[in-house]
Computed example of a mutant assay.
Amino acid sequence: MKKKNNRQLFKIRGEISRKAYLITVFATFAAILAFWSLLSYGNMVSATFLPSPGKVWQSFTTNLQDADFWGYVGISAYRVLMGYLLTCLLAIPLGILAGTFKIFEAIIVPVTEFIRYMPATAFIPLIIVWIGLGESAKISVIFVGCFFQMVLMVADNAKSVSGDLLQASYTLGASKIQVLRKVLLPALLPDLMNSMRLIMGWAWSYLVAAELFAASSGLGFMIIRAQRYMQTETIFMAILIIGLLGLLIDRLFALLNKKLFPWAEGGR
């Protein structure tokens, strides 16, 4: 039985129990923490470059009592949310059009493929010239970093809907509008939710870049300020906070996906 279970662990797309999955997840995080502790507490790396977990935790508990810290978390979350919502509002319809109609694919996809390889940070000088240094500029950086990726991902989601399913709808007498509204859109929703979940990760990754210029608040500003004074424990703490916020939102997306589309294959 044990040998059979071992074979299952390394089977391509093989299933493992929920318990084994969770144990593996926690063991991985524990191993990373242990390695970090070994390097820092063992003085293998200078505390200037790698603070100990204890110092990072101390920085975290200290900042929890600071009202400015909660303000930074709030403004960063606001910038990410606004950039993300703007991306969804514009990219999802364009992606569906590009994945459904060849003429829109010819208009949208080649240009989007070209622009998406341009780093979003390269647009920062232009954004400053065009928009200025206010909140709109920071939201725009997140938008530029996410928009072109999302258009292409949504287009792929639309293309992945079975052509046989669409043809069957036409055979049953459905009009083009009915096929779009009652067949295509419902069929792509599970994959669309996964794309939205992935793009949310992109939005958080562009947060620091968005807060690099003329920012006086936010977690990115906190990181830049700490870097000036070599407060690496604060840098680590802020990075981990961004990671935890992103992970929390990711898990909410996964839960929502499972509740709304229980028939679709999803993550754990």
Score class of each variant (00 low, 15 high):
Tyr84Ala: 09
Ile32Leu: 07
Tyr72Glu: 11
Leu38Gly: 12
Cys88Val: 13
Trp57Asn: 02
Trp36Met: 10
Met82Arg: 00
Gln65Val: 09
Gly83Met: 06
Met44Ile: 12
Ser52Asn: 10
Ile92Lys: 14
Gly95Leu: 00
Ala31Gln: 01
Ile96His: 15
Lys55Phe: 12
Met82Thr: 04
Met44Pro: 08
Gln65Cys: 09
Leu89Tyr: 10
Ile96Val: 13
Thr48Ile: 10
Ser76Gly: 05
Trp70Phe: 11
Gly54Arg: 04
Trp70Ser: 04
Arg79Ile: 15
Leu94Asp: 03
Arg79Cys: 14
Leu89Ala: 14
Thr87Glu: 01
Met82Lys: 03
Leu86Asn: 11
Arg79Val: 05
Gly83His: 05
Tyr78Ser: 08
Pro93Phe: 03
Leu81Tyr: 02
Phe69Thr: 03
Ile96Gln: 15
Phe69Trp: 12
Ala67Asp: 03
Met82Ile: 12
Tyr84Gln: 12
Val45Glu: 05
Met44Glu: 07
Leu38Ile: 06
Val80Tyr: 00
Phe29Gln: 08
Val73Phe: 13
Leu90Met: 08
Leu64Lys: 14
Gly83Tyr: 03
Phe49Asp: 14
Leu64Glu: 02
Gly71Val: 03
Thr62Ile: 05
Ala31Asp: 00
Ala77Ser: 15
Val56Gln: 01
Thr48Leu: 08
Ile96Ala: 15
Ile75Thr: 01
Phe35Ala: 13
Ser37Pro: 13
Phe60Gln: 04
Thr48Arg: 11
Cys88Ile: 13
Leu86Ala: 15
Lys55Thr: 12
Leu50Gln: 08
Leu90Lys: 08
Ile32Pro: 00
Val80Leu: 03
Leu94Gly: 06
Val73Arg: 02
Pro93Gln: 08
Val80Thr: 04
Ile32Thr: 08
Trp36Asn: 11
Leu94Lys: 07
Thr61Met: 10
Ser76Trp: 03
Thr87Phe: 02
Asp68Val: 15
Met82Leu: 11
Gly74Leu: 08
Val73His: 04
Asp66Leu: 11
Gly83Ser: 09
Lys55Gly: 11
Cys88Ser: 11
Phe60Asp: 01
Ala67Thr: 09
Gln58Glu: 11
Leu89Asp: 01
Gly74Trp: 04
Arg79Pro: 09
Val56Ser: 05
Thr48Trp: 03
Val73Pro: 04
Ala67Ile: 05
Asn43His: 13
Ala91Glu: 01
Leu94Met: 04
Ser40Glu: 01
Phe29Tyr: 13
Ile32Asp: 00
